[in-house]
């Protein structure tokens, strides 16, 4: 296939983006909400600490931002690499 090298670069860019997003995904849920909660327990939010907020609401908001960011970025990458649906 003539387009192969281009496709490989596109795929590498996708993997890079997914990796970054999943690091943030893990940090917001497993990190701040659970395992790293003691580290940020000094930050007070509405009668409790930031970790509790991440566990009940913050992580969900981060997930939302991540998915929309990924969709926006990938749809742009599709065009840059010429692999978008015409």
């Amino acid at each position: 296939m003539a387009e192969q090298p281009n496709n490989n670069a596109y795929w590498a860019a996708n993997i890079r983006l997914v990796t970054i997003c999943l690091v943030i995904w893990a940090l917001a849920s497993y990190g701040f909400a659970i395992l790293l909660r003691p580290l940020i327990s000094g930050i007070a939010v509405g009668g409790t600490d930031l970790g509790f907020w991440f566990a009940q609401q913050g992580s969900i908001l981060v997930f939302l931002v991540l998915i929309f960011f990924y969709a926006w970025r990938m749809n742009k990458l599709d065009k840059e690499f010429g692999v978008d649906e015409q």
Binding site: S29, A55, S59, F63, I67, A71
Partner: peptide
């Protein structure tokens, strides 16, 4: 439950 039942969508959207 809150995180688990929403965080799966990040995996679904990207993977």
């Amino acid at each position: 439950f809150l995180m688990g039942w929403t965080g799966g969508y990040v995996l679904m959207a990207m993977l």
